[in-house]
C-alpha cells in the first residue's frame, strides 16, 4: 500500500494522457514496422499484382476485343430497370466510384454487440 502519487486532477490528466498517447503511438509504429518486415507480404504481391493491371484495363480494353459485349450489359441493366417498374429512363451508365455495396454488406454483418 502506498499513497497516491498526486491528487491534482490536472497533473493526473497530463501524465495519464501522455502515457496513453505514448503507448498507442508506440503500438502504431510497431504495426508499421511489422508491416515493413512482414515476410508473407512478398508472397501476396504476385497475387495482388494483377489487380492494378485490371484497373487500367478499360483504356486498352476498348480498342481490343472486349471480353463482354457492352451492349449486353446495357440490355441487362435496362431489363432490370424495366422490371422495377415506373417511368424510369436511363441517362447514363457508369461504374460505381465507391465500394458502397461492399461496405453495406459489412455494416449488416457487424450486427452482434460486443461487450
Amino acid at each position: 500500500m502506498h499513497q497516491p502519487a498526486t491528487t491534482n486532477p490536472l497533473i493526473i490528466m497530463v501524465i495519464n494522457m501522455t502515457i496513453v498517447f505514448a503507448v498507442l503511438i508506440g503500438l502504431s509504429f510497431m504495426i508499421k514496422l511489422v508491416h515493413m518486415i512482414d515476410p508473407t507480404k512478398e508472397k501476396e504481391k504476385p497475387a495482388a499484382a494483377p489487380a492494378p493491371k485490371a484497373a487500367p484495363a478499360p483504356a486498352p480494353a476498348s480498342p481490343a476485343a472486349p471480353a463482354v459485349d457492352p451492349n449486353l450489359n446495357i440490355a441487362v441493366i435496362a431489363a432490370a430497370v424495366a422490371a422495377y417498374g415506373g417511368d424510369a429512363k436511363i441517362v447514363a451508365i457508369r461504374p460505381m466510384e465507391s465500394t458502397g455495396w461492399k461496405n453495406v454488406g459489412r455494416a449488416n454483418g457487424v450486427q452482434n454487440t460486443v461487450f
Binding site: 490528466m13 494522457m17 496513453v20 498507442l24 503511438i25 503500438l27 502504431s28
Partner: peptide
C-alpha cells in the same frame, strides 16, 4: 494505425 491516436484522444473524457 494512425487512427489509433483517436482512440487515445477520446480518453480525455475520463
Amino acid at each position: 494505425p494512425d487512427t489509433m491516436l483517436l482512440g487515445a484522444a477520446a480518453q480525455f473524457g475520463v
